[in-house]
Design a protein around this nucleic acid. Structure first.
Lengths: 206, 206, 206, 206
DNA sequence: GATGAATGAGGCTTCATTCAT
DNA sequence: AATGAATGAAGCCTCATTCAT
């Protein structure tokens, strides 16, 4: 099993292995986005990639590792892109708007990945049977948003709402914006994001 | 199979059959809430109810029909209760607040059902493989909220936001409030609902 | 899964289930004796019994449970038969002879079961990967033999040898007598047992 | 494949190949002793040796050939060592004692190899599905012991017991002494061997 | 000589469903 | 009305072996 080599933190993956992993991840994304997590068996993912079922087992320790890698690759890209857009902004209002518009703009070009990500977040469970990415996995996002709110409340931009409730609300608004867009592809995602920015600006400002 | 009789819309179910269906539905709710939709096999539901696996097959055409019935029974109860609380109110602001507080109060006593409902909404798929209760199943709620928003916008209470976006946002805020509470049982649901009412009042008012 | 009912200690098995379990156990014994534990897949056991593979899964929680049941049924019968033959004897020498001759006589009519039992003892491993019936499973036999030796040493029949070493030696002598007989069916088992009784009488007597 | 050259009986192996084979054999011994024959896949043996899986396939015709080589190397060493210790002795009693003490002393320093050897003896099967080293593989030992017994019976040291039964018994006593020691590492192997020598002296002497 | 990659068979398990009683 | 029994498909995983580089 190739994947055991990772333990020392060094990337020991050959070029070809990296390519295969990427290919398999891409295939998984497409299959999951199309038929849903529960129906996305390794057999189907392999078939869609035009490879043997065993290849996946060779490159990944198991289905879980594959799914986690899908999440990491996809999610990492998002965080990177959006984070860059928020660089240099200082007012809480600007930060929130940049976040909303940025994440929407990035996702506009990655609908399949978005759909797959959502499926995995919802369905993937750990060996203990509990969701691997449940609500609790949002903690990082909640903290980040709460930080921005605290900034705004200190500067007087925002009123003294409960930051946790606001964070949960705003995060869910973003999640559902995407879910709505995945369900209704003709929906104008950018306009939705702008409207959301307006709504939360009003909801937060003092 | 008994269930074939339902097609004509008449209730032909005997008392005993009705009782069995209710018992099975209740068992399904508990099992799903505890171990999740994916792990809730008919065998486990039957075992938890203390009955034979075959009984479920006898009373329900299949697993799907059982799940649909779980949703209908549980969801119907909510709509009924919350609808009653909104009766007689006229201002849009009041209606929204009544809705938020009402649904939270009702759910506070039905956490198991809430958790099961969420699981089924997310997981259940039709014979075509597409989600049976996806975002599109929210259409009814969206319409209802949009109606209230239109009221408020006409009366001048609300500014002229995009009603669909606001509906999607508010519905998601409610859904996630519950999801958060299911994950963190010690979370103060009523306080969250009140805060949410404040937030959306600010977000909507002109 | 039927087998979950056992927990309360009551036998809730229907007649037909009991028959099936017996049939499956018998099939497992025959297959294991013939082709060995490692090759005895559930598929082959089912095929040899003329039933579907799923039937085994229905009646047994898993392969492990089946194997354990094979051991219990077979081993229990031996202990019962041999125990009865030793009843009423008092001198240590007599007890040892009765044990050796008794177990041999019983086994003479159960060679297939003996072979299967040996295979399972050697091969079966628990979930932790360690042998389920290793040497340590002989502890009970060792204790029983040591009891007899202690009797003989107190009465003066036996010299003061190390009881544990003698027990390990005698138990292994019996095990290998059977293994030899399984390998060489024409070998005279009863004569071997009588010779063994003579050998250990000389080895023990003071 | 290199190994095809062996057929003519000549050693055509290069130094490096010989080293590799020894390394692989050593790795196999360690892995088998630790996790058991059934779990000792080629992948694990290769990983433990720090080499690629393919190397094993390159140097050995298959898993079977590797296992056979493990046995031959390990077993050969034992026979050599113990044989040397018995050189020059003449009385049957002395020979048996030297054998028992010698093999125990040698094994005391080779527990890993002993454990691996036991695992292979028990598990390895030929292409026909029958055990490659079953009881029948003990024939050589039986013959050797029988030779000593014949010596003792002729010289009058021993009574006229059945030599085959005694050989099977004594061989099994030695095997199980080791198995017991592998299971209970703190067990005093040498003391066990001395006790065994006493026991069999009493069992054999006229 | 050595390696990484790929394969395909075979194993165990789970499960919704069907059926005879 | 209910049950226990049986089925067969599908899923994931392991592994010895083969092959191109």
């Amino acid at each position: 099993m190739r994947s055991e080599n990772e333990s020392d933190g060094q990337k020991r993956r050959s070029f070809i292995e990296e390519a295969r992993r990427a290919q398999i991840v891409a295939s998984a994304v497409e299959v999951i986005a199309e038929i849903g997590f529960a129906q996305a068996s390794l057999a189907r993912i392999a078939q869609h990639a035009g490879i043997s079922k065993g290849v996946i087992s060779y490159h990944f320790a198991g289905k879980d590792e594959l799914m986690v890698e899908v999440v990491e690759r996809t999610y990492g890209l998002i965080a990177e892109t959006v984070g860059a857009r928020m660089q240099g902004l200082s007012s809480a209002t600007e930060l929130l708007r940049a976040y909303l518009l940025g994440v929407a703009e990035h996702m506009r070009g990655h609908r399949t990945q978005l759909a797959a990500l959502g499926e995995i977040f919802i369905h993937l469970r750990g060996a203990d049977g509990r969701p691997r990415y449940g609500i609790k996995a949002n903690e990082e996002i909640y903290r980040a948003l709460e930080g921005i709110y605290a900034l705004g409340q200190e500067s007087g931009e925002f009123w003294h709402f409960d930051r946790r409730v606001m964070a949960v609300t705003q995060a869910s608004a973003v999640d559902n914006m995407f879910a709505y867009w995945v369900a209704y592809p003709e929906h104008d995602l950018d306009a939705h994001a702008r409207e959301l920015a307006d709504i939360f600006e009003r909801a937060c400002r003092s």
